[in-house]
């Protein structure tokens, strides 16, 4: 059982430097090998998780959810009402999406998601977060100067569009539903999903590119 003693944890952090390799490659290897040696984990199980996030769990899931919301008004209503339940229709429920909220961009509103305190992210629907999302720069600035941050992603928000920043301070997680671009009339779900970017579902992309006609 954990001691839940902050002073003890802080002391171990300080002592760690004299015992644990500082290179993350060696440090992680040491942790895995000790955990395997004590029978806590198997490398095969870790391999399986890496494979699951490489081939199955990722932003393609979120893109499919977005595409369906553009095509099926009933699904869109269910998604906006209770996203955690709606993604079960795809079997996409999993880690960090049990209290999921979908935020719909409109001509008047642009949504942007951050976690200033750690880097919370809706893993089962968007997969692993990009490095910029976890950076001190993004965590510090997204709440204070979101328009400048968006400009660094090439996104300009007009003055009459309101920027809504969502700081993920609880176990609730957020996915942004971008607007469907013009010129995609008649497209099927797969074709629509292919234009939905990871950044658009976090909020650092607004106008999706539909590619060459």
């Amino acid at each position: 059982m954990p001691t839940f003693e902050p002073k003890r944890a802080a002391a171990i952090h300080r002592d760690l430097h004299s015992h644990v390799p500082s290179d993350p490659v060696l440090r992680v290897k040491a942790l895995e090998s000790l955990a395997v040696e004590r029978g806590l984990v198997t490398s095969e199980r870790i391999d399986a998780w890496v494979e699951a996030y490489s081939e199955h769990i990722g932003p393609k899931r979120g893109a499919q959810v977005v595409a369906r919301s553009w095509l099926d008004p009933g699904f869109r209503t269910r998604l906006l009402d209770d996203a955690a339940s709606a993604i079960r229709e795809f079997g996409f429920e999993g880690d960090a999406t049990g209290d999921l909220k979908a935020l719909e961009n409109t001509p008047e509103d642009h949504h942007l998601v951050v976690c200033t305190l750690c880097s919370c992210y809706p893993f089962s629907i968007l997969g692993m977060s990009p490095a910029w999302y976890r950076s001190a720069e993004y965590r510090a600035r997204a709440v204070r100067e979101p328009r400048k941050v968006l400009a660094e992603f090439g996104v300009t928000i007009p003055d009459d569009v309101s920027v809504q920043v969502w700081d993920s301070t609880s176990e609730r997680r957020y996915i942004v539903i971008p607007q469907r671009p013009a010129g995609t009339e008649g497209w099927d779900e797969d074709r629509l999903a292919a234009i939905v970017t990871r950044n658009a579902m976090i909020g650092t992309d607004r106008h999706l590119e539909i590619g060459a006609p």
């Binding site: 200033t116 997969g127 990009p130 910029w132 001190a136 992603f153």
Partner: peptide, 20 residues
């Protein structure tokens, strides 16, 4: 970190791969 000043630009990336 929220609201702290002095940090530089965000290193924006646009990749779609599963482990970015």
């Amino acid at each position: 970190l929220g609201g702290m000043e002095g940090f530089g630009p965000v290193a924006a990336t646009f990749e779609q791969n599963p482990f970015p």
